[in-house]
């Protein structure tokens, strides 16, 4: 019996098919990995006017012309970071800056924790871009202090700490510098 080899299949159009699939995926998908700034809103039940001592609160206002005022003084965007860092840390135990209290923190032991709260208020016509820019500066202040403490205690940045899965250590740092940014309702003028 003669040995008949099967006819060859023409693979010339394989590339075309693959290209078709490729183009399909290029069209229906997006490459952007979504990222954002995570915040937690205050729940409705929480009393709006909790009693917070004046020295423990940093009032950041962004007005309708996108100008920034912190505790009654007009400041530029680049100053926000320094003011916030100084406020959260209160390195010299200034009587006008937040009070601190001793707390037992897992891993780190007895530490002073500041009672700081940052309140950011905006006008109705504040631009979203400026609002986010201010939020970003405040977050940068927190992250800087967390990094600093983390480097000091564990010889790595806060980000690295989280990546290596040292959750207890990361939580200890978060307890010392909790990110308390209150997004209060915009002020409604009452006159």
């Amino acid at each position: 019996m003669k040995n008949v080899s099967p006819p060859q299949i023409n693979a010339g159009s394989m590339a075309d098919i693959a290209f078709l699939l490729l183009v399909f995926f290029l069209v229906v998908t997006t490459i952007d990995a979504d990222a954002g700034m995570f915040r937690k809103l205050a729940s409705m039940d929480e009393v709006e006017s909790q009693k917070i001592h004046e020295r423990n609160i940093l009032n950041v206002w962004v007005n309708k012309e996108d100008k920034i005022m912190i505790d009654g003084k007009e400041v530029e965007l680049f100053q926000v970071y320094d003011i916030a860092t100084n406020f959260i840390e209160n390195p010299k135990n200034d009587v006008l800056l937040p009070q601190k209290e001793w707390k037992t923190i897992p891993v780190l032991g007895e530490r002073e924790v500041s009672k700081q709260v940052i309140s950011i208020q905006n006008d109705e016509s504040t631009s979203y871009g400026q609002y986010i820019a201010v939020q970003n500066e405040l977050a940068r202040a927190y992250n800087h202090l967390r990094d600093q403490l983390s480097e000091q205690e564990f010889q790595m940045t806060f980000e690295e700490l989280k990546k290596t899965g040292a959750i207890e250590k990361a939580n200890a740092i978060k307890t010392i510098y909790p990110m308390r940014i209150s997004e209060a309702l915009p002020i409604v003028s009452t006159n």
């Binding site: 952007d32 954002g36 915040r39 809103l41």
Partner: peptide, 20 residues
């Protein structure tokens, strides 16, 4: 969102130096 207690939010941003 507060009314329906959807309290976890995220402001979507792109990475880069803050604008404005």
């Amino acid at each position: 969102l507060r009314k329906v207690s959807a309290l976890k939010i995220s402001y979507s941003t792109v990475e880069g130096l803050a604008s404005n």
